[in-house]
Structures are given as structure tokens and as C-alpha cells.
Design a protein around this nucleic acid. Structure first.
Lengths: 152, 152
DNA sequence: CTCTCACCTATGTAAGACACCTATACTCTT
DNA sequence: AAGAGTATAGGTGTCTTACATAGGTGAGAG
């Protein structure tokens, strides 16, 4: 009964090798709002479009449907059960004015965050030290993890 | 006994007005690693530098110290109590080789994430609809939040 | 007809990240 | 002695989310 939870942000996959997923909290929200701004859609379809837009692994259906219902409760999206559908029932969502305003706020915040990331990356690039494998090298020497038990 | 917790990601501050904080999860970690790559430092000093680097509100000391201890436990940073200090004792941290490798991984992931944000913003800009107050307008009509109880 | 499978929606749970709060101790000024 | 600034640390509740499970519909296969 293996668990092997995928780590939320990062994990070490070997000596000097790490997997990092820089995730934006609640990033699914602006993504969904954008997709709905581009046109009405239903949960399952949104999940497929999100997969392409977010470029992460598979989207979690459970959380997506929860998000959609929460958005509706807040009046940011509105839904109706599709009538003309031949297949199983679909709850079709569309953006409200409030939802569009929230998308605007998200866009502004994302732009600002992107600039902050750029600033950090700029300082990272400016490091001239021998520090930096630049190609994912190992270089794990100088691990002086001794003597830190020496509180005077 | 007011609580008024600052919202984690976003909150509505009025009709059609939202405050959004697009946060990167665990963003303090690459920031701390970068600061230590630029030079050894101690917790309190890091907090001040982080404030400038992250451009968010005040940094939470409790979580920062917890992060530093966790990083040390993983061998990503190493600490010693400063001897020559005139003030109260400081635990001075420096980056290890493993820590530098993690910083590299973070940088790569942040770059990728930044591109994803750019892609989303590009599609956002491409919206030609009447949707978009562009100046934080209200426009909250069409909130057709009725009839969604009509499951056939 | 029944079975499987793809489509579509939904709830439960636990781990992880974090905002907010409190506590301790040292140093220097007033 | 009191107070402010520096420096480190532990506690806790809430939000976000990865993973698990469940139920309903329609189409095609056996």
C-alpha cells in the first residue's frame, strides 16, 4: 500500500538533484476565469483546457468542481444545466461581470508577481561565484554540515 | 476581539473590486537561498532583506526561523553561532553545495512558471470582448444567478 | 441484455504551507 | 528600572490541495 505522495513544492531526487514545482497558489482560479471569458464551458471541458493552459500534470477534478461551485456561490460565475445535450448532463458555466472584474485583478497581480520573479532571477543570474552548475551538475562538496552543534 | 485575518490569496473589497495576491508557494525558500548565495547572514538580517526582495508585507519571523532550521536539517544550509558578535547571539547561516543546487532548481522552475504566467496574460490581453473594465470599473449586471435550480 | 468504457459531476480526507500570536533573552538608552 | 530594538523560537488554526472514492449517463462490444 504505497503512498508516495507527490510533494507539494519540491523534493530531493538524488544527491544534488531536486525537483521543484514553483506553484502559484489558487492558480486554477484565474485560469478558469480566463477560459470562461473566452467562452462558456462545463467542468470536464475546463479540465481539459486547463491541462493545456497550466502545463502541470493532470488537473484534479474534485478540486476543480469544488472551485466552480465556490465561484458560483460568490456570484463570479453562473451555471445552467445544458438542455440540448445528448450525453450525460453538463453544468455549463459562464462568467459574470464580477467574475470578469476578479480576472482583471488576478491579471494585475500576476503581472506584478512575474516582475518579482524576474527581479529574483536577475539577481540569481548576477551571481558570479563558483557556485552554479548551470547544467544541473552535482558538485556536492563543501557540505560542512558538522560543527553546528557547538553552541557556546 | 477583531480577527480580520489577511486573506491568503484574494478577497472582495467592494462591488466589482478585488484584492488579489498571486503568491508563489514557498517563495521564501528560493529567496533565502539566493540571499545566502550572495553572502552568509543570520535570520533577522535575512528577514529585512526578504522584505525588499519579496515586496510583500512584513516577513513572518516564526516561519522564517522554522524554514531555516528545516533547511539546515536537510543539509541545504549550515549555521554557526557568531562569536565576535557584540549584540545578542546570532545564528549565522551559509549555503551548502546542496543548497546551491536547490537554488538552481528553483530558478529553473521559476523561469518556467514565469513563462506560463506570460502565456496566460497573453491570452488575457487578447480578449476583445466588451468584457474588461480595464480601470477597475463595476459593471456587475447580468448576474443571472437564477434558474440554476432547474435540473430537468 | 449485460459489460465495459468514456464522459461528467461530486464528496471525503489528510498533509502541507502559512498568518497570527505569544514567549524568551540579550543589549543599549533614558 | 523601564523601555525599545535586536534575535531566536514554539504554538495554533485556517486555507490550499493531492489523493481517494463514488455515482450517474450513453455508446459500443460481446
Amino acid at each position: 500500500m504505497r503512498v508516495d505522495r507527490q510533494p507539494r513544492c519540491r523534493c530531493r531526487v538524488g544527491p544534488g538533484r531536486f525537483e521543484v514545482r514553483a506553484r502559484i497558489e489558487r492558480f486554477a482560479e484565474p485560469a478558469v476565469l480566463l477560459l470562461l471569458a473566452e467562452g462558456r464551458s462545463h467542468g470536464y471541458q475546463l479540465a481539459e483546457d486547463l491541462e493545456e493552459l497550466l502545463d502541470e500534470g493532470r488537473v484534479d477534478f474534485g478540486n476543480l468542481y469544488r472551485l466552480l461551485r465556490a465561484l458560483e456561490e460568490e456570484g463570479l460565475v453562473a451555471s445552467t444545466w445544458s438542455e440540448e445535450a445528448p450525453g450525460p448532463q453538463k453544468r455549463v458555466y459562464e462568467l459574470t461581470g464580477e467574475g470578469a472584474a476578479l480576472l482583471d485583478a488576478w491579471a494585475a497581480s500576476l503581472r506584478a508577481r512575474s516582475e518579482r520573479i524576474g527581479a529574483l532571477l536577475g539577481r540569481y543570474e548576477a551571481l558570479e561565484d563558483p557556485v552554479h552548475p548551470r547544467g544541473g551538475g552535482i558538485r556536492q562538496g563543501s557540505n560542512r554540515s558538522d560543527d553546528q552543534g557547538g553552541e557556546p
